[in-house]
Each structure stands twice: as structure tokens, then as C-alpha cells.
Design a protein around this nucleic acid. Structure first.
Length: 686
DNA sequence: CTAGGGTTAG
């Protein structure tokens, strides 16, 4: 075409250019070079380039070309131009840019164009402004199926499932025939609402009305069945599907794994024809999110051995979270190293997971290092770091971070405030806590939820302001949940207030009759205040009603292996050594003037129904003894306990840290205790 | 003289 000169004819050039820019196997880079050499590209050619960029990896180039078109060409954008730039704005979630383009659309009198309106609906919905999307939607005179689809999908993606289904009904009433895209959106709404009945109705509607069953629609059905818990329907559809892709396989694995049918999930995984990381991720994350972090890590281990595929960002998020749950720092560090080696770039999800892992494993410094080195920090990253400080009782540092977060113009959310209030609570920063709580709604627009009220009650109660805590509960605009009464009960235990404890406990049991922890706490308060009759009555009641509690369990990681200890157990291979170490510890402590606090003995109810030697058999002690035997003296002993640490064990840990000159990091249900030189970082305020 | 918008899983 260059030789014949045809290339210099704008129309002919456009014919050559289109397949180069849009073809599946062509290179956009090459097309761009060609474009720059077309002497006078016509508007069609401009639009084609904008279109190509809008669905490319760099949608931002669409804007660049759009601006060139508007300012450096003889043309003005037309009805074909706008849908593509709006799509680019949607893909980049650039709200102000899209708004500006919308403005241009109106000024240039294109606002009645159906295609442009439909793109705008999609754009506003993606940006989360459903009110504006709906505004554009109702303004359309003659809506077509795409208008309805865009709006329905918008509602589904924004979490307004009810609205989506309502709109679908309206669509039926207006006699607009739904197509397969409509059904995908409606099924997605059913899936998220867990509405199996309506989901089944939709499936039969699809069949009756001959809606084209493509792969996407089959997958959407599959997902609906899985999410609504009907694995049988999912399985029979899956077996019937002629064509399957990675989404189909992953959906099935996810379904089985989330229901705890791990063998079934594994067998689907083994049958996937092409190994892809997504299928592994479905399994790993299901384990991790179902409280089976060990299993998650063992699948990860298998993945590494298989060597067919490499872990990706999603995998790392899951396995780091598994390490965080376990307090498995050595494994976490190895995973972090692997990420670096694999050249994984830290996104905000990964940063959050890393910080969470390091803080929950007891390495605040490393968490801070990650926090300071990353380039971008979203609200989750900041909130997690604040939560980290809170866990260590570093209230001041947490609040300092909170103000720096605002300087960085990151808007705090409900979780941020939970963490901030938690930090105030753990550090006794009552005035600050009150202030932030009062500012939440008026200043930050975050409506306090039950978690925030719980933090406040915990903070006031812990600080001994029990009357204020009660008054606070009475003034709550929402119904106080079990956690609120639990916080009050916990405070009563610290401050030995029997009457208030009974009051809180009765409320708590009204809401949660099965809450064994409440009775345990109450019995501990009775014990602490010497009300032995009440103690035995309560314990009898608990035995009779057969209430089972979560057994106390402490774990410690040694050389990348997690060792778990239940109270009084003797199944560990080094059991003998551990018990003789415990005897040695007690002897050494006693010679140093240690007297066991007998009131804690009654807490054996909280631990296990072991009658003798109860204090010595607490799970955290077994773990500490094992740590003394097996962890290098230069390394801190890191322990994770599923319940709160007992007061006597806390004293013992402090003494051990001094007498044995060891650092002990103990993570209990709520916070960290860092024992060093005879003291604990919590300053005994916990 | 050409063309465009909406869809599922990890």
C-alpha cells in the first residue's frame, strides 16, 4: 500500500488499520506506529485507536488520543467516540474524568444517544455512584436490553441484590425480552442473596424461553447453585456441560472446599486438565477461611512440590493469612522471601497480609519495615498497622499513625475506628477514645456499629469506670449485642464487681444461652471474691447442662513446625522433658519468692476439667517449657494462645523472662504480651 | 463507504 500510495488515502488506510488495532493476534504497539504515519487519519481511524486502547492494558492511552483528537485534529468526537472513552474511564475507575466526559456529551448534544447512555450507566455503576447511574437510566426514552442489563448488573455489583431483582421484574413488565447477559446478572444476584428458590426459577425460565446457554451463563448457574449450597444441582449441571473452562472447575472446587468436603475438592483439582493457579487458590483460601490454616499451608507445600504452576498474589495473600492465624513466623518469613524471589510486586492486599502476618507473629519491627517501604497504602494497610500497634498496647503510636493516615488523605472506615478504639482500650487512653468515638459520625461519616460500642464498654470498664460503662450501654441507640455485655462482664472480673457481673451475665445468657465463656467468667469472679457456694452451684449447673467450651490451646513454632499443646496433655514426644522442665521452673520460681495465685486455680474451668496441678498444666506453660528446651537462647519464644492468658501464667512468664533471661512473646485472644526482664509490655493492663 | 454499550470464578 505504501508503494501504490493507497496508504495515503485515509479511507484505505483505515481499512488496513482496523484489523491491526483490533485483531486478536495483532500488536497494538505496531498499530500505534502505523497510526502515527497515516498522514490524515479520518475520524473512523481515530475512534478505532481509542477503542483499541480502551480495552487494552493501558486504557489511559484512550484519553491521550482523545485529547489529541479534540485539540489537534480537524474533527470533533462523535457518537462513536464517547462510548470508548467512557469505557476507558470505567476501566480505570476515574470518576472525575468520566464526569467531565459526561459534561462534554451533554454540551455536544449527544445525551440522547442510547449507546453513550448505556456506557455511562456502566461507568457510574463501576464507580459506585448508583444514584447517578440510575439517573442516566431513567432519562433514556427508549431503553434497550443493554440499558436494562447495565443497570441490573450495576445493582448486583454494588451489592443491591434486591434492587437488581426488582428492576428485572420491571423489565419483564415493560416487555423487554431478557437475554443471556440479563440472566447472568440475575443469577449472580441470587447467588449473593443465597436465594436458591428464585435461582431455580431463573434456571427454568432460561430453559423455557430458549435463552442461549453459553459458557458464561452455565458458569453463572453453577456459581448460583454452589453459593446457595446445592452441590447436587451444581454437580449434575457440571457433568452435563459440554464446554468447561477454568471458571467452571474453580467454582466446583470452591464449592466443595467451602462446605468442608475437601476430598471432593481435591479430586476435582486433580481432574483439571490444565493446571492453573486459580484452582489451587480456591482450595487454599477455602481452608484458610474455614479455620484450617495448617491444611492451607500443606496444600501450598504440595503446590510448590508440583512445580507445574507458580503461586501468585492471591495464593500469597491466603498463605500469609494462614501464617498469621497460626503465628507461624518462620514459615511466614520463608513465604515473604519466596515472594521477593519470584519478583511479586506488593499490592495493597499483599502489603496488608504481610503486615498482618508480622504483627500477629510478634514481629512489630518487621511489620513497620514493610509498612514504611511500600509505595501505596490504602485504608486496609493503614488500619492493619494501627491494629498491630493496638495489639501490642502501643496506643500512642496507633493514634499517631491514625493522624498520619489523615495527613495522607486516606479516609478511615469502620474497621479503622474499631482498631483505633481498641488501641485506646488496651492502653487506657480513655479521653482519646471518647473523643474519637464522638467524632466518628459527625466528622468522618462512619456510623458506630456494635463493635465500636463494644470497644467503648471494654475501654471504660477496663479503666474502672463501670458506672459510665453501664450508662453508656443504656444510652446506646442500637440493641446491645452479646459482645457488649461480654465486655462489661470482663471489666467486672478485673474490678471484682459481683452484682454488676451477675447483671451483665444474665443479659449475655439471654442472648446466647450456650455461651459457656460467660459462666466461666462469672464463676471466676465468684472465686476471686471468695463466694465458693456460688462457684460450686454454677459449676454444677454447667456440668448438668453439658455446656462444652473451647479447650485452651497454645502453639509454638519451632523450625517451621507448629507444636500444639492442650492443657494437661502428655502426647508430645518430648513430654517427659517438658514436665521435668516445668518442675525445674516451679522450683526456681519458688526459691525466688513466687507464690502461686490460688484464685486462678479456679480458672481451670476455663482451661480444662483437670483437677490437680491445674496451674502447672495450663497450655501456655507447656508451650513455654517446650520453648525453653528447643528454641535458641538468642531467639524469642513465640506462643499463640486461643483464649486469654491466665493471670498466674502471666506472672510466671514475667518471672521466667527474668530468671532465664529469655524474651517471650505471647499472643492471646486479644493482644500480645511481650515479656522481657521480668516485665510485660502490657504493663499488667489487660 | 466502515463502527459502538452490558456478563461468571480464584
Amino acid at each position: 500500500m505504501l508503494r501504490t500510495g493507497l496508504f495515503f488515502d485515509p479511507y484505505s488506510a483505515s481499512k488496513l488499520f482496523t484489523p491491526c488495532a483490533l485483531g486478536t493476534f495483532s500488536s497494538l504497539e505496531y498499530a500505534r506506529k502505523m497510526f502515527d504515519q497515516i498522514p490524515q487519519p479520518n475520524l473512523y481511524t481515530w475512534n478505532t485507536l481509542i477503542r483499541a486502547y480502551s480495552s487494552s492494558a493501558e486504557p489511559i492511552q484512550s484519553f491521550m488520543i482523545f485529547l489529541q483528537l479534540a485539540y489537534n485534529s480537524p474533527y470533533f468526537p462523535n457518537e462513536f467516540t464517547f462510548p470508548f472513552v467512557i469505557k476507558a474511564a470505567a476501566r480505570l475507575v476515574q470518576f472525575p474524568v468520566g464526569q467531565a466526559i459526561h459534561g462534554m456529551v451533554i454540551k455536544s448534544s449527544f445525551e440522547d444517544d442510547l449507546f453513550i447512555s448505556n456506557s455511562l450507566i456502566h461507568f457510574y455503576a463501576i464507580c459506585g455512584d448508583l444514584a447517578m447511574a440510575y439517573c442516566v437510566f431513567v432519562m433514556i426514552g427508549k431503553k434497550d436490553v443493554v440499558s436494562w442489563n447495565s443497570m441490573i448488573s450495576g445493582f448486583v455489583q454494588g451489592g443491591f441484590f434486591e434492587k437488581a431483582i426488582e428492576l428485572y421484574r420491571e423489565m419483564e413488565m415493560e416487555n423487554v425480552k431478557p437475554d443471556e447477559v440479563t440472566m447472568v446478572a440475575v443469577l449472580s444476584a441470587c447467588a449473593k442473596k443465597r436465594d436458591l428458590e428464585f435461582g431455580r426459577w431463573v434456571c427454568s425460565y432460561i430453559e423455557k424461553n430458549g435463552i442461549k446457554m453459553d459458557l458464561t451463563l452455565s458458569n453463572a448457574m453453577l456459581d448460583m447453585y454452589v453459593k446457595c449450597g446445592s452441590l447436587e444441582d451444581a454437580k449434575s449441571l457440571f457433568d452435563k456441560m459440554e464446554e468447561k473452562d477454568i471458571v467452571s472447575w474453580t467454582t466446583m472446587i470452591d464449592g466443595y472446599a467451602k462446605l468442608g468436603e475437601f476430598d471432593a475438592a481435591m479430586s476435582v483439582l486433580a481432574a483439571v486438565p490444565i493446571q492453573q493457579i486459580a484452582t489451587w487458590n480456591a482450595l487454599i483460601s477455602a481452608y484458610e477461611q474455614n479455620g484450617k490454616p495448617n491444611e492451607a499451608l500443606s496444600i501450598f507445600h504440595e503446590l510448590q512440590l508440583s512445580k507445574n504452576v507458580n503461586p501468585d498474589e492471591f495464593t500469597f495473600v491466603s498463605v500469609l493469612s494462614a501464617c498469621a492465624q497460626l503465628g507461624a513466623m518462620d514459615i511466614g518469613v520463608q513465604i515473604h522471601a519466596k515472594m521477593k524471589k519470584q519478583g511479586i510486586k506488593l499490592n495493597c492486599y499483599l502489603t496488608t497480609s504481610l503486615i498482618d502476618m508480622y504483627t500477629k507473629c510478634g514481629n512489630l519491627d518487621k511489620a513497620l519495615e514493610v509498612f514504611h517501604t511500600v509505595k501505596s497504602r490504602d485504608v486496609f494497610v493503614w488500619s492493619t498497622m494501627i491494629a498491630g500497634f493496638a495489639m501490642y498496647g502501643c496506643g500512642r503510636e496507633a493514634l499517631d499513625l491514625f493522624s498520619r493516615m489523615q495527613e495522607a488523605k486516606v479516609k478511615p472506615n469502620a474497621v479503622t475506628f474499631t482498631n483505633v478504639l481498641c488501641a485506646c482500650s488496651h492502653s487506657g487512653l480513655v479521653d482519646e477514645g471518647r473523643m474519637f468515638f464522638n467524632q466518628m459520625e459527625p466528622v468522618y461519616g462512619v456510623v458506630p456499629g456494635v463493635k465500636h460500642y463494644t470497644c467503648m464498654v471494654d475501654m471504660l470498664g477496663r479503666a474502672g469506670l463501670l458506672d459510665e460503662a453501664v450508662e453508656f450501654i443504656e444510652k446506646m441507640p442500637i440493641v446491645p449485642g452479646a459482645s457488649v455485655w461480654g465486655a462489661l462482664l470482663g471489666a467486672c472480673k478485673i474490678h471484682e464487681n459481683v452484682e454488676l457481673a451477675e447483671y451483665a451475665c444474665s443479659h449475655l445468657l439471654e442472648l446466647e444461652p450456650e455461651n459457656h465463656g460467660a459462666l466461666v467468667l462469672l464463676s471466676n469472679i465468684y472465686a476471686k471474691t471468695g463466694k465458693w457456694d456460688n462457684v460450686s452451684e454454677l459449676r454444677k449447673h454447667m456440668r448438668v447442662s453439658g455446656l462444652k467450651k473451647e479447650p485452651g490451646c497454645s502453639s509454638i513454632e519451632v523450625n517451621g513446625e507448629i507444636h500444639k499443646f492442650l492443657a494437661g496433655e502428655s502426647s508430645h514426644p518430648l513430654c517427659k522433658e517438658i514436665y521435668s522442665k516445668l518442675d525445674e521452673i516451679v522450683a526456681r520460681l519458688k526459691s525466688f519468692g513466687y507464690v502461686p495465685n490460688r484464685s486462678h486455680l479456679l480458672q481451670l474451668v476455663e482451661e480444662e476439667d483437670v483437677q490437680e496441678q491445674a496451674l502447672n498444666l495450663h497450655s501456655e506453660r507447656l508451650a513455654i517449657a517446650y520453648g525453653l528446651i528447643s528454641v535458641e537462647p538468642s531467639q524469642p519464644i513465640r506462643i499463640v494462645k486461643n483464649l486469654r492468658v491466665c493471670g498466674d501464667c502471666h506472672t510466671v512468664a514475667k518471672l521466667i523472662s527474668k530468671l532465664y533471661n529469655r524474651e517471650i512473646l505471647l499472643r492471646d485472644r486479644y493482644r500480645f504480651h511481650h515479656f522481657r526482664g521480668g516485665n510485660c509490655s502490657c504493663m499488667d493492663y489487660w
